[in-house]
């Protein structure tokens, strides 16, 4: 028997995959586009580039569990579009990009995800997470599994002031509430993935 049932890839384009934060994003004014079979919040009404902190639903990022790939603990390797995050000495979580190998286990829907970015991102996360994210202790590419808002989670420091948070799919509505509540008083607002892509492109150019 196949393990295809684990994967959010539908056999036809009738079934559109949905993030568990879709309702929250919609209520916050998100505009959606279907991308690779996913209904994705691409932008928000009135969204501007200027921000202290923003959060974006990136639950549609594909995730795989791969065996036999460890790596340096606490460090996520960038491989193409993917982050390879070592969970144990012989097991890693691959976030984003294409399927890394035919034996990789599709765990996309085990983890919902938010990107939190901006100069107040670290301060926002400090409101609900005890991880030490000071730059000297968690430089870019750091990988930190640990408690996020009292739930099991994982955090990738994607760049200076930019963090990728992973948490259980079923806890997503709660997480959105927590993140929005922490970020809003600091001037935060939700962002669509177009914003993320723009920043990514800029960073690539800078690099």
């Amino acid at each position: 028997m196949s393990l295809a049932f684990l994967s959010p890839v539908a056999a036809d384009d009738v079934a559109i995959a949905r993030s568990p934060m879709e309702r929250m994003a919609k209520a916050a004014g998100a505009e959606f586009e279907v991308r690779d079979g996913w209904n994705v919040a691409v932008r928000y009404a009135g969204e501007t580039a200027e921000r202290t902190v923003a959060w974006a639903d990136v639950s549609h990022l594909r995730k795989w569990e791969v065996e036999g790939q460890g790596g340096e603990f606490g460090v996520a390797r960038r491989e193409g579009d993917a982050w390879v995050c070592p969970l144990t000495s012989d097991r890693a979580l691959v976030i984003g990009g294409a399927e890394p190998s035919p034996t990789a286990l599709d765990v996309t829907c085990n983890y919902a995800a938010l990107t939190i970015l901006g100069p107040q991102a670290r301060e926002t996360i400090a409101r609900f997470c005890a991880l030490d994210l000071r730059p000297q202790h968690a430089p870019p590419h750091s990988f930190r599994p640990g408690s996020i808002a009292r739930q099991p989670g994982m955090l990738v420091v994607e760049a200076e002031d930019r963090f990728l948070l992973l948490f259980g799919w079923a806890t997503a509505e709660y997480m959105w509430t927590v993140v929005a509540d922490a970020a809003t008083p600091l001037g935060g607002r939700p962002a669509g993935i177009e914003t993320i892509e723009t920043i990514e492109a800029t960073e690539d150019t800078d690099a």
């Binding site: 969970l87 144990t88 005890a130 991880l131 930190r144 640990g146 408690s147």
Partner: peptide, 10 residues
């Protein structure tokens, strides 16, 4: 041993 130092509540 896998993840590093965390609060005991983890």
């Amino acid at each position: 041993p896998n993840c590093g130092t965390r609060e005991v509540t983890d």
